[in-house]
Write a protein that binds this DNA or RNA. Sequence first.
DNA 1: CGGATGTTTGAGTAATATCAACTGTGGTGG
DNA 2: CCACCACAGTTGATATTACTCAAACATCCG
Lengths: 261, 261
Amino acid sequence: MHVATAVRNETSFRPQPQPLAPLRPALRDVNAPACSTCAVRTFCVSPKVDGDIAAALDRLVGTRVRLHKGDVLFRPGDRFTALYAIRMGSCKTVMLTDDGSEQVVGNHLPGEIIGTEAIAAEIHGCQAVALEDSEVCTLPFDRIEALAHADADFQHDLYRLMSREIGRERSAALMLGTMRAEQRLSWFLLDLSSRYQARGYSSTEFVLRMTREEIGSQLGLKLETVSRLFSRFHDEALIHVRGRIVTLIDRIALQHLITTS
Amino acid sequence: MHVATAVRNETSFRPQPQPLAPLRPALRDVNAPACSTCAVRTFCVSPKVDGDIAAALDRLVGTRVRLHKGDVLFRPGDRFTALYAIRMGSCKTVMLTDDGSEQVVGNHLPGEIIGTEAIAAEIHGCQAVALEDSEVCTLPFDRIEALAHADADFQHDLYRLMSREIGRERSAALMLGTMRAEQRLSWFLLDLSSRYQARGYSSTEFVLRMTREEIGSQLGLKLETVSRLFSRFHDEALIHVRGRIVTLIDRIALQHLITTS
DNA sequence: CGGATGTTTGAGTAATATCAACTGTGGTGG
DNA sequence: CCACCACAGTTGATATTACTCAAACATCCG
């Protein structure tokens, strides 16, 4: 992480009000790579990126945004204009409590859409921060709605997308409300694992993009607790940890931890 | 709670596959009361129930379902066919963990919509149970989508509805992840209070429809902890409690509890 | 009135947080 | 290139919170 990042973090990337200028093909090739060639298109807004929707989607995507590690995509209070699709890299979303402390409410991999929480109020309620150098596609929401109005299948895809998000949040609540520390960390690792697997990455070996503190925040634990658990899981040969590099050794045992008392 | 309720609970109400028979006006008056005369119409699917949407909404609502306390509206695994709008009474939604224990993930007042978590999988992921004798409007989802396709404003209302739900779930996660027991209960009481107030009920005096165990479940606490906290809040003159009847005395102090430490 | 369910309260315990010291580690500048 | 510095992570000792177990009490209905 560059020294400059702190500065960048302060000033931060702020999405411009979408100009909605006519999209000349030449421009689009640079700023808005086509969905149809995107590596994660099947996990993104609409699973079937072919036929009519393909072209429409390509037209829908606004700009491609490059984020450096630590860059802020949006903050609480920012006006909502667009959803963002992660194309490369990863982000965390963070909510701020009344007393200033913060909680990580999600970590997001390529193909995942963020910003849906802000549709209702038209103001973002959380902060999105790049966990590594990343690329994000801007999906201006007025265009999304126009396409949804024109295409019933796409309309349905969006309802599904948001429904899935509700389900994810519920699972997180279940985790936070019912699980003990070791179960939470196990849940975290298995969740990450399956999401990596779905994207064609290794499901057994991956690099954590969050610090112990951020992981703890997402799991409702303190960083020391997370660190101790990593050590214990390592000692018990459930996983291998070396800093942020994690290898799942005994996935059965990890799953078993969650399901038993 | 009637003795018979246990039996009813077992057999339980299960929504029939929507017949979608032509709706004769005479029949509709009995089974599907008009949104336009509903007490909570402004909190429900679409805030502005007038003009074109009014009639469409009236046509959209399927049947009105009467639930007795303890009746199950849907269970995990049930096929998703419709959203449900609470017209009267209240419900809880419950998720089941892998090991059989359960967690309350939401309590729902008149005007709130439940079932949105099931749109994606077309299978319900949680259980909805009436906390008292209630009435619920069935909103067949195919009709909802058809109306959304026809009317862009209504389409937007639905996105807003689901976005709000995502925001609520996030707030719950924030509560579960960052707050101590006393803060959680305070949060619970103030949340209920403001939702009652929005519906025109007293914001300072209300009847809890959940047991200490159910409240604890929603807050990630044990029933004894909840009971002790009610007693303490009572002793400290923050609230007055007598069984399930609660009166908020010092709302400022309750809010202060949440924001400090 | 009586049984079932829900609630309160106490005493002891387990889990996790807190405080503190120490140990890598990666990037930067001398 | 190396030394340093800030940051991240580990580990130990102790404190605190909320859970567990247990018993008594209240309330609601039939």
